[in-house]
Amino acid sequence: MEQRNWLDRIRDKPGGRIAVKITVTVVGVVVIIVGAVLIPLPGPGWLIVLAGLAILAIEFHWARRLLAFARRQLDRWTAWVKRQHPGIRFLIGAVGLVFVWAVVWASVKVSLGVDLWREAREWVRG
């Protein structure tokens, strides 16, 4: 509740409402852009995008609705996965790990020029 009071006090000052709206917009958009860049990499890309959306939701009704929609979809996906046979859940996890490995491999190959797959095979051969 304190944060709302703090924001309300800023909004009550001359120019405060527009300052809060501009600040929230800039910070939210920057966080979303950073998250979008990180989506293909292993890590919390989508979580960062949702955090940016939550920042925008402080000032924008459309962002609150979109964030609520995203939460509902995530809840639906989680509930669906929990209802699946353990073998299907294992397969979903395995596909996720293969995807992460492919992204890591491609990232290292493109950015550092190192083929992790070849390096691993050579390491195993000794």
Rank of each mutant, 00 (worst) to 15 (best):
G15H: 06
V98G: 12
G43E: 04
I33Y: 10
L53R: 02
A19E: 00
W77K: 09
L50F: 06
D115C: 06
L47Y: 10
L67W: 09
A63M: 08
E122N: 06
A120F: 09
M1D: 14
I33K: 02
G87K: 09
S107V: 13
P14W: 01
A68T: 12
H85E: 13
D75S: 12
G96W: 00
Q84A: 07
D75K: 09
R125F: 04
T78K: 11
R83V: 11
D8Y: 06
A36R: 01
L74G: 12
G16I: 04
P40F: 06
I88P: 02
G126M: 06
Q3E: 09
L91D: 06
V34F: 09
A19S: 12
A106C: 09
I58G: 02
R89V: 13
D75W: 09
A63E: 13
K21P: 02
V104M: 12
G15N: 06
K109H: 10
P44V: 00
E119R: 11
I22W: 05
G126E: 07
L50H: 01
W101F: 14
H61V: 07
E122I: 00
R76D: 13
W77Y: 14
G113R: 03
G43S: 05
G93V: 05
V24S: 02
G35R: 04
A106L: 15
V31M: 08
T23Y: 06
I58K: 00
L47T: 13
I48Y: 03
I88V: 15
P14M: 03
P42D: 07
W6S: 13
G28D: 04
G16W: 00
A79N: 14
R65E: 08
L66A: 14
W62H: 11
L38T: 00
K109G: 02
G96N: 09
V95Q: 11
V49S: 05
K13Y: 03
L41S: 01
G43Q: 04
D115I: 07
L91P: 08
Q73A: 10
L56I: 01
V24G: 02
P40I: 04
